[in-house]
């Protein structure tokens, strides 16, 4: 039985780990806790705004992370070209996350999937609620409306060759009040590839809801108390208790 995954998402500005709120760096962390053994997967995202840092600092952070990471590591943020894929894979990423460029140039999805395999291409979608049950995809750190509807875009991304979809609710980011499971369910039911849900988890029950109501294959968390060893174990025990198959 394939287990549901609990994934830690780490967001970096100029190579330094920050928690984000509404997509802005909010709270700075030290990195000593990352080599936890209970987490199922790690996603490292560069959220450096233009002119606020160098790509090299992010790369060196990913490389350090990869060295002590014996679980899958996905990396992304500002990925524009096949060379960016190659760079991240060469420093230890197993998968690459693309967002803005996927919307701008969907050929990149196909090209990358052909070269590195679909399992290597995670298409990340940031969405904002624009009405009752209605959502819109935003790019460029959640600032630019695209006119795309998230589940339709996810379906397209799957057709272009994406191996996984990561869906993030922009307005839930950093609020710890739970995922937008209406959005998650909409996207999960539209595709037949795995869906990772992100944005808003603040308590263990949120993970359960993300899977049971949001139909997620994996639930993501960005907050520090979620990714110490003890808390990951406790979260998984809670999920198991709620009838979800997880890796203990």
């Amino acid at each position: 039985m394939l287990r549901k995954r609990l994934i830690t998402v780490l967001t970096f500005t100029d190579g330094v780990l920050f928690r984000t709120k509404l997509f802005h760096p909010d709270y700075r962390y030290t990195q000593s806790f990352i080599d936890s053994w209970s987490i199922d997967e790690v996603v490292a995202l560069d959220v450096t705004r233009p002119g606020q840092g160098s790509k090299e600092n992010f790369y060196s952070t990913v490389q350090q992370l990869a060295r002590k990471c014996f679980v899958p590591l996905a990396a992304g943020g500002g990925v524009r070209t096949i060379d960016d894929f190659k760079k991240l894979l060469s420093i230890g990423a197993d998968k690459v996350v693309i967002n803005t460029e996927a919307v701008r140039n969907s050929k990149l999805i196909t090209e990358a999937a052909n070269l590195f395999g679909a399992q290597c291409v995670v298409v990340s979608i940031d969405a904002k609620k624009i009405g009752e049950g209605k959502y819109e995809v935003y790019t460029e750190f959640g600032t630019k409306p695209t006119g795309l509807e998230p589940s339709a875009w996810a379906k397209k991304a799957e057709e272009y060759g994406a191996g996984e979809i990561m869906i993030t609710s922009i307005e839930r980011d950093g609020f710890l009040e739970g995922y937008d499971n209406e959005l998650n369910k909409l996207v999960s039911e539209a595709v037949s590839i795995p869906v990772l849900v992100c944005g808003g988890a603040g308590k263990w029950q949120d993970f359960v809801d993300g899977i049971k109501i949001g139909k997620a294959s994996a639930v993501c968390t960005t907050n520090i108390y979620h990714f110490t060893d003890v808390s990951i174990k406790s979260a998984k025990a809670y999920m198991k208790n709620a009838g979800i198959d997880v890796r203990i």
């Binding site: 394939l2 549901k4 199922d40 399992q119 191996g163 037949s192």
Partner: peptide, 11 residues
């Protein structure tokens, strides 16, 4: 209900 690719921890 089983999605492809098969991604994650399994037996």
């Amino acid at each position: 209900d089983l999605r492809v690719p098969h991604v994650g921890w399994d037996d």
